[in-house]
Write a protein that binds this DNA or RNA. Structure first.
Lengths: 206, 206
DNA sequence: GTCTATACGCAGATAGAC
DNA sequence: GTCTATCTGCGTATAGAC
């Protein structure tokens, strides 16, 4: 998920800032911390990026563009709908397992400064209309139950993302003393969400 | 949801702090802002609660104890399972519609200081085992599909809470230019989530 | 109990030597 | 480009008068 590799100073800064910002958020992160993580001096951060805000924006915008595109293409392939949804869930949960801090970070930041988010996000024009059309076609063909396709997307994202974003709470709620089972629970949700969704929306072949 | 009403100073502070903390979070809130909201002086905050941290804890603990108990009792009544789940969703979404800032706030704080959260939360001992037992009985009786009851709870909470917590993003993703439709979408989810869940888990009467 | 004035530390930002 | 040293403002917290 990260093509920042060369160790010239600017890339070291970006890599370090990404790590710290995702873990602590814009308000929680400290410039000193980022400098330490990058193994350089605090003043250099300001030399490359004029301010903390600018550095944060660089990271955040980059992150948004990485997250979305890969996922939508999968849903527009020409596989059967059950398979597409199944793959979507697997890929998405896998991505989250590799980036467990991401959901909480994104939710935190879009709520902290939703104006900035809306501005940068509107430019990207992630257009789900193609996906909604696809789903409506499947409904017309009688392959899946008729419903608002927006609910399908909302439910899919919710069931995938929420258990990561709410981990500290859910792991206690669901497992009490035995927290450590939670990571396995997340892993298993690749199949349990699939079952749950398909049982709800797929109609029997007539 | 708020029994703080009398306008002696301490209650004014608690009321104001609750408003500001929920909207801005622990890190984003300013003591000055809370003082203004309460119509008193900044120094008084420290007179009543020694520090910002202590004031925050008072609010947060109070909030946690309010949120959970009402909900669980409903699921343990003796109505049919379909009805219980339907009512749970309605009540929960209604609560969220009245407290739209709550989900983002709670997610933010449990991830910022998960140690503190776990400490205070463990004391409350919200025990979902009774609910899990109830669900397993329904499975044995053939009323609902056999699955891990934890997935049912996780999915229910996810589908209810996530669209509130991720509102700035989801409203753009799902509706693009026409944001304003999002609030109606949330309202309608009282029935669409119900359909979605029941279609997935309820087995036909044989 | 409530106020004003002030101390204090922290974190972002800048100056300037090398 | 990179560093050390320093400035500056903000926000929590305290002192002390009333």
């Amino acid at each position: 998920m990260n093509e920042i590799k060369k160790d010239n100073t600017e890339d070291k800064i970006l890599k370090a800032a990404k790590t710290i910002f995702i873990r602590k958020g814009m308000e929680g992160a400290r410039m000193q911390e980022i400098a330490d993580e990058a193994g350089i001096n605090k003043a250099l951060l300001h030399y490359y990026f004029r301010s903390k805000q600018k550095l944060f924006e660089a990271i955040f915008v980059n992150l948004l563009t990485q997250i979305f595109p890969n996922i939508t293409t999968l849903l527009l392939s020409d596989k059967p709908i059950e398979e597409k949804i199944g793959l979507f869930i697997e890929k998405y949960i896998d991505m989250l397992l590799q980036n467990p801090y991401l959901p909480a970070f994104v939710l935190k930041e879009i709520n902290r400064d939703s104006d900035f988010f809306e501005k940068t996000f509107s430019n990207r024009k992630i257009d789900l209309n193609l996906i909604f059309n696809m789903l409506e076609k499947e409904m017309e063909a009688g392959n899946i139950r008729k419903m608002n396709p927006r609910d399908i997307m909302a439910n899919l994202l919710a069931m995938c993302i929420f258990p990561f974003a709410a981990k500290p709470m859910l792991k206690l709620l669901l497992f009490g003393e035995n927290h450590q089972q939670y990571d396995q629970f997340l892993e298993e949700r690749k199949s349990t969400i699939k079952e749950f969704v398909l049982n709800s929306i797929v109609l029997p072949k007539s």
